[in-house]
């Protein structure tokens, strides 16, 4: 999920770009246009490779950072069943991160390098994970809305032109549906409960609705690199198209729950068959991306600490492997 197209500035295109001939570029585009998949060792323009490394690593980082808001609730899940489900979901997120790092590595960048870029703040992750999970209902809202938005984004990525990324996405999409349903299930139970429980569900929707819409990235008119990504068939639908799809399906689900979507401008447009919705607060989006969201600093600090605290384990495993090898030799 979580491919907002952040951090899109290619400040210093590498010199290798200059060595690419028009003939090579045309032949590459023809393969794309013919719906051929591009595989790891195939020739590809450097800009295509860079775009993919950026998008895939950003996507992987989002899965990893995304474990934090939910992990926060593991020890406070209301029942053992909910705890076991949440644990399984979070483990899936770790798995998704690993599938994606694995896909990223096929492009010639090491996982260590990608992780280093996350920890140094050079690489971005989805804005959504910089919001706090304040109540148990937030865990429901994250599954329903955040994973729901992710599914909208990810299903077209299963047909992405880059084979290893598309294959990782097929695997992820299969698992994501469980995530969305468990979230909806949490909210449904709260909505059928006491007035306080229902109010808790409404409060979670109030706080997660707009940040979820922001997950699709800037409006099409503002999304500078979308056209190239579409031409390369990395992206199949525009940000606004996907956002609209998400609103259309999600509003009806909110109605089922008896919850009110926090948007006074929301109305169904009979003619187009779509919901019209209010303007997103793009200033908030920009601030969160810049690092000024409610939890940006906490998320990275926690990831750095986990990475540093795990260093002795990685080193011990390496030392053990070296010893075993020496013994065998």
């Amino acid at each position: 999920m979580y491919t907002q197209g952040l951090d899109q500035k290619d400040k210093s295109p590498e010199k290798r770009d200059a060595l690419e001939t028009q003939e090579q570029l045309d032949a590459f585009q023809k393969r794309i246009d013919d719906e051929e998949k591009i595989e790891a060792k195939d020739w590809m323009p450097e800009a295509y490779r860079r775009t993919l490394v950026r998008q895939i690593s950003q996507h992987a980082h989002s899965e990893i950072i995304g474990m934090q808001p939910e992990g926060n609730w593991l020890t406070r899940a209301p029942t053992l069943k909910r705890k076991a489900i949440l644990l399984a979901k979070i483990q899936d997120e770790a798995g998704h991160g690993l599938y994606l790092y694995s896909a990223g590595e096929t492009l010639g960048v090491s996982r260590d390098q990608m992780v280093a870029d996350l920890l140094s703040g050079k690489a971005k992750y989805s804005s959504i994970f910089n919001y706090p999970a304040l109540t148990w209902a937030d865990i429901g809202a994250i599954g329903w809305l955040v994973d729901g938005a992710a599914i909208m984004n990810q299903i077209p990525l299963c047909r992405c032109s880059y084979g290893p990324y598309a294959r990782a996405m097929v695997r992820i999409c299969k698992e994501e549906s469980f995530h969305q349903r468990q979230g909806f299930d949490i909210l449904r139970v709260l909505c059928e409960g006491t007035a306080e429980q229902k109010a808790m569900a409404q409060d979670a929707l109030d706080r997660w609705w707009w940040p979820s819409l922001m997950m699709f990235g800037p409006n099409d008119a503002e999304s500078k690199h979308s056209a190239q990504s579409m031409a390369w068939k990395i992206k199949r639908f525009s940000n606004d198209e996907l956002r609209q799809k998400f609103v259309d399906v999600t509003v009806q689900q909110a109605e089922f729950l008896g919850l009110k979507v926090p948007d006074d401008d929301l109305e169904f447009d009979e003619e187009s068959g779509h919901y019209r919705f209010g303007e997103i607060d793009w200033q908030e989006f920009i601030e969160v991306i810049k690092g000024n969201g409610p939890c940006n600093k906490q998320r990275i600090a926690k990831r750095r600490k986990a990475h540093d605290d795990g260093e002795w384990v990685r080193e011990a495993a390496r030392a053990y492997a070296d010893k075993q090898q020496a013994k065998a030799a």
């Binding site: 690993l98 996982r111 990782a168 695997r171 495993a317 053990y320 090898q325």
Partner: peptide, 11 residues
Amino acid sequence: AGSIHAADDQM
């Protein structure tokens, strides 16, 4: 299926 990192074969 994909790839993984590990220190040794069993891992």
